[in-house]
Design a protein around this nucleic acid. Structure first.
Lengths: 225, 225, 225, 225
DNA sequence: AATGAATGAGTCTTCATTCAT
DNA sequence: GATGAATGAAGACTCATTCAT
């Protein structure tokens, strides 16, 4: 009786994902242009030739990395907002914050660094990112803020909603980028991203007139999510 | 007969600066690894060989670009704070905002993109940046916030001052980076950075309990919406 | 119950020949160096690995193609001459011409192109070709011409018999080569090889003092003009 | 006083031709696909990089070799025919024969081998060859034969002129190709191309009813041209 | 000081060949 | 026998750097 699934076959199915993981690591570490395809292959545990069995060129690998790693993240955010039934404040504190904390913690956070570095060299990738990531991402957050305004929770009368969304979002994206650039250098630094994300959201809520959360333990609970 | 200070002489003295300007442009556009020294030389109007008369290698050129373009910016910020005698709120609205708006508008804003992309590949550059740019930059802003707290203008009881500074600063850095990556791609986008910077500062001030500016600023804020 | 001679078995026996056919096609089309073993295998309807079950290397495949495809052709020519009992003129018109027309029409004509291209890279193949194809080929034709001279049909007093044979043979070989190089390109061209072969033989006969064919052949010649 | 023309500069001007010569040699020897750019560069006495300063790719080098080496040859033939005032027979014996003998002897003869091998892989090159070499070449010969027919020297009533031209031309082209394939292999062979070319032309003339040249020494004189 | 021709190490990519299934 | 995933050596091409002029 032969084993149910031969390792060779299982390998073949897993390869594309393994290669994407390896490529993400190397591209984030070195930058796309400075990354060697050898390194990607080696980190995935295969030879250089194997890489080309799955992706026809280094550039195609880049595109695959970016699209594969981001599609899911945005959809997760949209689901959170669609499913929520409570207050906008709770949505921010109990769902947006953990979502971002997990995004920051995951390797996918590196994609922002790649995007920023390579957008001008690969216009198609930039198009994809603008259309499939940035736009839906902004829409989700705009919806959250709008819910808060409509319910009277948030007071943003004086400010542009779009700019509020940027004030809310950009620091998180910047934190993701920082994690993989200066944050990865051996420089002493006391920066706790989960806390920062939580407090930043709190700061924006405060700016919209939302009073601080009732008790102290609450934030700690969120941090563990 | 006074020497006419031949244009050639003037040219020669200006060379290093012209080369730095060209290098900044090309590095920001293509990324350091993908940038060709040919392009830098050509954009500076000299031959490739001439470049090497002034900078011994591409990497040295990178270091020179980063150090030369940022030193002044930080010092400007420090001077603003040191010289200021009025309220912290006014400091934010009347000095920090214009400073950042000018930084955003200047080519120096591109250095953030280069830094983010190359920090891990050039640890010495990262060290310089952390020591000479990030740390002083944070100090200056921390000082401003502290002035506001000490004078009773700002209420940041629940939040870490460091995190408040990050909430204040990161969106601006992110905007600078965006300007030179996706913002430079031919994608339709309605984003007015000077307005955003002003409103973002206002948002942070509001989060610290500072009431909106009396009369003049408000219409401007609305007008930009 | 008689065994039905499973198609698989028949297939297996035919494999080597099918592979040679496919290899000939691909080598003639692309040239040996530019031909990919993948293409050969695919055109033969097998996997790349199977190719190596039958031929130990690409070079061995080349050798097999050349030897297999030419051995028969020469032998056919020799048999024609040996078996013939009539005049040398009739031998040329009624047997050599059809033989060459068939050779031109068959895929084997492509071997000349391969040989010409690869002789210097594969001296052993060149040796085989010189010994097994060119020499016997020349011998057969020399014999035909000699028969004509001996019988008084042909007058070649001033010319070397060897050169006469070359004058007779080279255009046909060249036509075969042309068929698979420029003749295969989408270039408008009005060239009818069977007519040319017939007329070329007639030209050489005329140069040896043989009068044009009496009645039947002439109209055919004119018709093709 | 510096030397009038620096060797560096003189070198630069000569490089393209030196590279073409080297490329022709290597392409003819190995075939285009099997030829290594390193070999071409080395044979021209430069480094691989230098090759790419003058020709942007291996394919462009191929095109340049073919066009550069053949343009002149055809023009030479046309000039011969245009300038001639004597009999068509003398044109053939005294001008076409030496022209072909020189072509055979020159490195340019190798271009036929390259063309035959690469026509299908490089349609543009095939187009150029068909338009700029084959067509004018045929035209020139057709003109010669037509002159002979019109003046009553040649009797080709029964044969197609086009086919007569092919009978005349193809053996010479085939001889050129042979020189660089099997003829270049270490195979004993007694083949004297200049004699063959002379006798082949004589054979074709004879087929058109032209009597042999008056005296024996004449051919020898032609051979020395 | 300035030039730009030349270099050659380095990288992406291909493909003949192998071998576990 | 048959397959096709995997390999890695080889080759086209790039580009930072040098140096003769």
């Amino acid at each position: 009786v032969p084993p149910v699934s031969a390792p060779r076959q299982r390998r073949k199915d897993a390869r594309p994902q393994e290669l994407l993981d390896a490529a993400l690591e190397v591209f984030v570490e070195k930058g796309f242009a400075a990354a060697r395809t050898d390194d990607v292959a080696q980190r995935a545990g295969v030879s250089k030739g194997t890489l080309y069995l799955y992706y026809p060129s280094k550039t195609d690998l880049l595109k695959a990395v970016i699209t594969a790693k981001l599609r899911g993240e945005i959809e997760r955010g949209r689901q959170i907002v669609l499913a929520h039934r409570g207050s906008a404040t709770s949505l921010m504190r109990d769902f947006v914050a953990p979502w971002w904390q997990q995004l920051y913690a995951s390797p996918a956070s590196g994609v922002f660094k790649i995007m920023v570095a390579e957008a001008r060299n690969f216009p198609e990738v930039a198009d994809f990112y603008a259309r499939e990531v940035m736009q839906p991402g902004e829409e989700v957050l705009t919806q959250v803020v709008q819910i808060g305004i409509d319910s009277g929770e948030f007071a943003v009368a004086l400010a542009d909603v779009k700019h509020t969304v940027y004030s809310l979002l950009l620091p998180v994206v910047m934190a993701c980028i920082h994690k993989h650039s200066l944050g990865a250098c051996p420089i002493e630094e006391c920066f706790d991203p989960p806390s920062f994300i939580r407090e930043h959201i709190e700061l924006v809520l405060r700016s919209m007139g939302v009073p601080p959360a009732a008790s102290a333990p609450a934030p700690q609970t969120l941090a563990s999510a």
